[in-house]
Computed example of a mutant assay.
Amino acid sequence: MKQQTFLIKTRTPRKHHLCHGGTLRNSSFGRGARPLSGKDPIHLVFKVNIKAVKGGLRSSKNFNLMTLLLKRYSYKFFVKVEQFSIQRDHIHLLIRGGRRSQIQSFLRVVAGQFAQRLTDTPNTKNDGPRVWKHRPYTRVVKGHRAWVTVRNYIQLNECEAKGRPYSKTRLRGMSEEQLRELWA
């Protein structure tokens, strides 16, 4: 006797099927399992509650701490950090990992260590405001064109953190020459 398969219809729309966390968590679209991939890169965003972090993430102490933790735990969990940008109130990462469990462990440990070290509470409970505004946002980046767009976006964020003026059109209005200038 042949076994029947029943297709379960998901409520996640097509444009959100590779995304999880962030503000999506507030709607029913972001409440499923976190999509992760061992082959494809992942765009990861940690959003910090600026009231909980003194000086923001771009202060020299916090910036050095972030880069140290990223290096340490990417090595430990075999996750390659292709690109990162640390802003005043959020962090963008472009990562690649091996197994799903390694990527999940990387997300969990990095978020926990960031929170403990930023609030100076590694051994005690934090009674102040929550460190994270939302759960980490992840998006599996499918295809070369999407990968290039995410890389340019992260680079643009880094340039804006270093003093480049913000533009509403951002990447959409950039010419080839401006994109080359972005990476110079």
Rank of each mutant, 00 (worst) to 15 (best):
I154R: 01
W183D: 09
K2S: 13
H90S: 11
R170H: 13
K168A: 13
E177R: 15
R139Y: 05
L179D: 01
F63S: 01
Q178R: 12
S101D: 11
I86R: 02
P165I: 04
L94I: 09
S37Y: 11
F84C: 12
S59C: 15
V150Q: 03
R88F: 06
S60E: 14
W183I: 02
D127I: 09
F29N: 09
V131I: 12
Q102I: 00
D89N: 14
R72W: 04
K61S: 07
T5V: 12
S167P: 00
G30F: 13
Y137P: 06
Y73A: 02
Q178C: 00
D89C: 05
G143Q: 07
L156N: 13
A111V: 01
G97T: 10
Y153T: 03
N49C: 14
A184V: 08
L70I: 12
E82H: 12
H16T: 02
H90M: 08
A161H: 07
Q83D: 08
G38I: 08
R58A: 03
T124R: 12
L93N: 02
L36S: 05
Q104P: 01
T149L: 13
K39H: 10
V140N: 10
L18A: 09
P13N: 07
P136V: 14
L93T: 04
H92P: 05
V140Q: 11
M1N: 10
G30S: 09
S37R: 10
Y73F: 15
S105V: 01
E181D: 14
R151P: 00
A115Q: 06
L94D: 03
T12M: 09
V79R: 05
Q83H: 07
L93G: 03
I50Y: 07
L179K: 14
N123V: 03
K54D: 09
I95M: 10
K133S: 10
H92E: 04
G98C: 04
K125M: 08
L171M: 13
L70C: 10
G173H: 02
E160V: 15
K168Y: 11
C19Y: 04
R170M: 10
H20F: 12
R164I: 00
R99V: 05
G163A: 09
R72N: 13
S85N: 07
Q87V: 00
G97C: 13
G98L: 05
E160P: 02
I154L: 02
V45A: 02
G55D: 05
